[in-house]
Computed example of a mutant assay.
Amino acid sequence: MSDSRVSTMTFALHPRLAADTFLVGDLPLCRVLLMNDQRFPWLILVPRHAEIREIIDLTAPERSILMEEIASAATALKAATACHKLNVGALGNMVPQLHIHVVARSEGDAAWPGPVWGSGTAEAYAAPAAEQFLADLRHRLPGLRDA
């Protein structure tokens, strides 16, 4: 990152992301979160830089790292869920902080074949199911460390 940008030392997760997710852990660039909606296995990757809104705000090397981390998260999610399709996107219309959604989709899920956004009220994971899924994801994500 250029010297004019705020360092990762001031990184703070947007309150809405914090409220809607479980912490999976940290990859070299991104914090990995699990959306608290059991209808859709859904990871969110958040680069740990303050004030970043767009992928183009990252340096070229960081964009390369981001793509590898997206691929790693998608691979882990696909292995954990045996999903039919992976949806990957960086929308940011509701939360301005750069974050990338990696959503496992299956034919017949609650929103199939439409998008998951705006598809009704989230159904929170029960505590044991969340902990089991988090443990599985942590096992499948190489290079993941505690946040």
Rank of each mutant, 00 (worst) to 15 (best):
F11W: 10
L13H: 08
H14E: 15
P15G: 10
L17C: 10
D20K: 13
T21N: 13
F22D: 07
G25N: 01
G25P: 11
D26I: 00
D26N: 13
P28I: 00
C30F: 09
C30A: 15
C30M: 12
R31S: 14
L34S: 11
L34W: 14
M35S: 15
F40N: 03
P41M: 03
P41R: 00
P41V: 03
W42H: 10
I44V: 15
R48M: 11
H49T: 00
H49M: 00
A50M: 07
A50Y: 00
E51N: 12
R53F: 07
D57C: 08
L58H: 12
P61F: 09
P61K: 02
E62G: 06
E62T: 00
R63K: 03
L66M: 13
L66S: 10
M67V: 06
E68C: 15
A71C: 14
S72N: 08
A73Q: 01
L77E: 03
L77D: 06
A80D: 11
A80Y: 14
T81A: 06
A82L: 12
H84S: 14
K85N: 02
L86W: 06
N87T: 08
N87S: 14
N87R: 01
V88E: 08
V88N: 05
V88H: 07
G89A: 15
A90K: 04
L91R: 00
G92H: 06
N93C: 01
M94D: 09
P96H: 11
L98M: 09
H101W: 09
H101Q: 09
H101R: 07
V103Q: 08
V103E: 14
S106A: 11
E107Q: 07
A111M: 08
V116T: 15
W117P: 11
W117A: 14
G118I: 04
S119F: 11
S119V: 02
T121A: 08
T121Q: 14
A122C: 12
A122F: 11
Y125H: 11
F133D: 05
A135M: 05
R138N: 00
R138E: 01
H139S: 07
H139L: 09
L141R: 07
P142L: 02
